[in-house]
Amino acid sequence: MTQETSDKKWFDQLVMELRLRQVHGSAIGDTVASARELLGDTGQRAEEAFGPARDYAAALELPAAPKHDWIRTALWPSLLGLLAFLLFNQAVVSWTRSELLLVSPAQAAFLATPVVLVALLPFYLDAVVRRIRVCVALAAACAVAGILSAVVTPTNQAEAWLSMDPLPWVVGSALVMVALSITNAVRSSRPGSADDVTDPLSGTADGTGTGARLMVQVTDWLFPLLALAMLGLALSFR
């Protein structure tokens, strides 16, 4: 049981390390299956046979996608989704209260903080993935920035830097979130996606169970779902 647990942890780390190296999902599936094959033959523990997962992933030197390809395919759409979600949150409260959308410089700076932190992710992604403390600190910084942006929200037009009709911003940001979610959902439902870790013999993707599929769908529609929740809250507290 302990061996199974430690091997599971080792394989999870191996998949994560190969993903960080932008290795194609089918090559990750092949690597995992061949490692399992040898462990089945020798009865060894994964760490004993292959050494640390990080070193093994590096030693394999598997062909990988261009280093910054994920920035174009994953980071920019996520960033746009986050930006749309933050704009929606600001605009929807004003809209439900039939008020103008008021923005101050301090509020804009606090709202931009999570966007900037996510945009700079390529510089510290390894640290976020490998050290839970960095991940918690990042989440905390985003949460604090969100709270502070609410604190410094202008209460009247004199304090505001910008005052706008909130409806176009509500509609525009909602459309952006829905369009991005549809794109993500279409991409993740396409068979043979580069992200799928596929078994080399059966060709089936890892994690094709109902729970895993539901999780992928929830992730694809995360911003619209959260925006709906925000709309519900704004309507309740107006």
């Binding site: 490692a35 040898l38 046979a49 292959f50 050494g51 030693a59 394999l60 030197e61 062909p63 080399p200």
Partner: peptide, 22 residues
Amino acid sequence: KGGTLYPLLSRYETAGLVTTEW
């Protein structure tokens, strides 16, 4: 060890010295 052999075979596959089949 597997951790020594497989990276070597992986490099040979990339170099076209070996092919693989499941």
